Amino acid sequence: MKKCSLYFKAIFTVKMLTVTMAFLLTSCYSGYLSINYEVHSGAVWNDKHTNVAFVASKTAWRNVKDIARFPIGGRSLYLLEDVGLYIFDYENKLLDELISFNELAGCIGTNRTRWEVKLVLTDTMVYYSISPLLGWDREIEHPLIPEKSQLLASLKEKYKLPYAFNMFTKTETIIDSTVFNNLFAESKDAYSCNLTSLNKQLAKIPLADWGLNPQEIYPKPDRKYIEETIYLRNTSSQTRRAVIEQIIAKLSKSEIELLLKKMDDYKNSLEGLKKTEFELYSKDSYEQIKALL
């Protein structure tokens, strides 16, 4: 009987420790979600300048709270880390993800400075070559995540040759390196797409089209997302934009007007530098909400 009692006490203790650790780790992170996308270098036009192919990263994370940096280190909690090949229809403002490179992203990260991307775009095909910027061998010898070295070796075999992706059949095939290099050399200067211009156009694309939906990534009541947006508690401008597009846009005209009034009232309740900062940093969100009327 005594052994049985000790056994159950041990189980209870382990469960309590597990719950406590889970709570502590969860409480180490901010309750506010940050989201972002980043277009990599190497975007290219097709010959008619109607479509652009590019590789982009998209991320979502919760920042570490200042008081919690010691127990868990300084890295934010990432809820989404994706890298993919996209096609953007300039005329119709349509964005489509063709291929996901998430296995490789899980090994070398999503930062565009770690990727080498070469693309060629025609009306029907996207030819691509991807690799770590520092080279496969160096990445395998000094991996960002040590336990991923074997996976990197297999990905090297997968991506050591370029591919051709058929946009109509949604299929891809390996192509000869010499063929790809010739295509790339012929097109890289003539069809290179300026990233500044591209980003201006992509800024008009709803974040839902990127798959950046706050409620799916980090669910919580709409009310909380709205409050942190209108009072600027969430410093991520992209998250605030997503909340406006995906949550506030569904409200009635009178409800939207009330939110604008709350923002005005809150601004008027502030003084000095705080008021100036709120006016400055809330301007885009305010105008985005106002545009819904």
Rank of each mutant, 00 (worst) to 15 (best):
K2M: 11
C4M: 12
S5H: 09
Y7C: 03
K9G: 05
T13K: 06
V14M: 13
L17P: 02
L17M: 11
T20R: 09
A22T: 11
L24V: 02
L24K: 07
S27W: 14
C28G: 12
Y29L: 05
Y29S: 00
Y32R: 00
S34D: 07
S34G: 05
N36M: 13
H40S: 15
V44H: 03
V44P: 01
W45K: 00
K48W: 08
T50Y: 07
A53D: 04
S57W: 01
T59V: 07
T59I: 01
R69Y: 09
F70R: 03
P71C: 12
G73R: 12
R75M: 08
L79T: 05
E81V: 01
D82T: 08
V83R: 02
G84R: 01
D89L: 09
D89R: 12
K93D: 10
L94A: 08
L94I: 09
L98E: 04
L98M: 08
I99E: 07
N102W: 13
A105V: 02
T110A: 11
N111D: 14
N111Q: 15
N111G: 12
R114M: 05
T124R: 13
T124V: 14
M125I: 10
V126C: 01
S131D: 01
S131G: 02
L133K: 07
G135E: 12
W136G: 00
W136T: 00
I140R: 04
E141I: 11
L144H: 09
K148W: 15
A153G: 05
L161H: 11
A164Y: 03
T171F: 15
E172R: 06
T173E: 15
I174K: 13
S177G: 04
S177N: 12
T178K: 11
N182F: 03
F184G: 00
E186V: 12
A190H: 14
A190Y: 11
N199H: 14
Q201K: 12
P206N: 10
L207W: 03
W210T: 08
G211N: 07
G211M: 03
P214N: 10
P214I: 08
E216F: 10
D222K: 09
D222G: 01
R223L: 13
Y225N: 01
I226F: 08
E228I: 04
I230F: 10
L232H: 04
L232D: 01
R233D: 07
N234Y: 11
S236R: 01
Q238K: 09
A242V: 02
V243C: 05
I244R: 02
Q246R: 08
K250G: 06
S252Q: 11
S254G: 00
E255V: 04
K262Y: 15
K267V: 06
E271D: 13
G272D: 04
G272T: 07
K275T: 09
E277R: 12
F278C: 02
E279M: 12
L280T: 14
Y281R: 08
K283C: 09
Y286M: 04
K290R: 12
